[in-house]
């Protein structure tokens, strides 16, 4: 059943971001992911699509969820998965980055999954290695697999992406999740709202095709999806917000604010959550509304689809023996 789809080819060597992908390309990734969702719910989850292939998870930034999700995805496809966590505490981070690329080339990896604290670092690395690269988050730039898993979750629940009203709330300025979601949902015809204090919005953000709200109640009015973002507490030291208490009062998601959204509106969060900071615990755990657990499940399927579709793109890779 999976083999029937191998004709569809993802025509990019790497997955560095959502910006620039066309609607058919996004649909291809989502449809492929959909097949893996079913697969993952069976008792025997193991496949052989990546048999003999090496996937390296190269994380220059701490991560448990995304790394585990990619690791599981690679293993379920039958690939060999190696985790490398590189300390970024050393002063010459960049040197390490390109030196690491040289090392990895020599190891003949087939897919590199990379997370890095600097925007653009994954692209820089992709120019220096001779295998496919998947961006698992670069600075404040993009986190494409997160946007894909969010889109898959929404599509399964709502049956579509186009025409939905989506509100993304919180620290937009520093969020790669927000950027990837803005690009994806705009491309697929959803209408987007951003809800944040002005200090957490980047310059000229309305140029990305979004409507901006500073009053969360108004921003959530009639929306179908409420996407919350994680607030990083160091934002307070940067004088972007005065206190957590104040932030939660105006921009934290509670039932009172949620009441403005559509009665069937879904609540999403990329995790890990700060309960009581950007989201009230009761709301987060309300499984009639919150699809946060489902997002995690979709994450594995989306990452399997990405690994699968990008592997044949690697040079000198033989077509996999299905």
């Amino acid at each position: 059943m999976v083999a029937a789809d191998t004709q569809a080819v993802f025509r990019h060597r790497h997955l560095l971001g959502i910006e620039g992908l066309s609607p058919p390309e996004i649909l291809l990734l989502l449809d492929r992911s959909e097949q893996f969702v079913e697969q993952n719910r069976r008792p025997d989850k193991k496949q052989t699509l990546l048999r003999g292939r090496t996937v390296i998870n190269l994380f220059f930034e701490a991560s448990t969820r995304t790394r585990t999700s990619f690791e599981l995805a690679g293993k379920r496809l039958g690939g060999d998965v190696i985790n490398m966590t590189v300390s970024t505490s050393s002063v010459r981070k960049g040197e390490t980055l390109l030196d690491t690329a040289m090392t990895l080339n020599a190891m003949h990896a087939d897919v590199l999954v990379v997370r890095h604290p600097a925007s653009g670092a994954v692209k820089l690395l992709s120019e220096k290695v001779n295998c496919a690269v998947i961006n698992a988050g670069d600075g404040s730039h993009e986190h494409p697999t997160q946007a894909l898993l969010d889109a898959l979750t929404i599509r399964r629940r709502m049956g579509r992406l186009s025409g939905l009203k989506v509100a993304i709330c919180g620290d937009i300025a520093h969020s790669r999740v927000a950027r990837s979601n803005i690009h994806l949902l705009n491309t697929m015809g959803a209408s987007l709202r951003l809800v944040a204090p002005r200090t957490l919005l980047p310059a000229a953000v309305e140029r990305l095709g979004v409507e901006v709200f500073h009053d969360m109640r108004r921003g959530l009015e009639g929306v179908d999806i409420v996407m919350m973002l994680r607030l990083q507490t160091e934002r307070m030291q940067d004088t972007l917000i005065p206190s957590i208490r104040e932030y939660f009062r105006f921009f934290g998601l509670d039932y009172e604010k949620l009441a403005r959204a559509n009665a069937s509106a879904l609540i999403m969060h990329p995790g890990p959550m700060n309960r009581g900071v950007e989201i009230d615990s009761l709301v987060a755990d309300d499984y009639s509304r919150s699809v946060i657990r489902e997002q995690v499940e979709m994450g594995v399927a989306v990452r399997m689809a990405c690994l699968d579709l990008l592997t044949p793109q690697a040079p000198d890779a033989e077509r996999r023996n299905v």
């Binding site: 993009e142 790669r176 990305l208």
Partner: peptide, 13 residues
Amino acid sequence: NAGEVATRLGLRG
């Protein structure tokens, strides 16, 4: 420069 390009690239303006 702070502006649309920086925002798209996720760079600080």
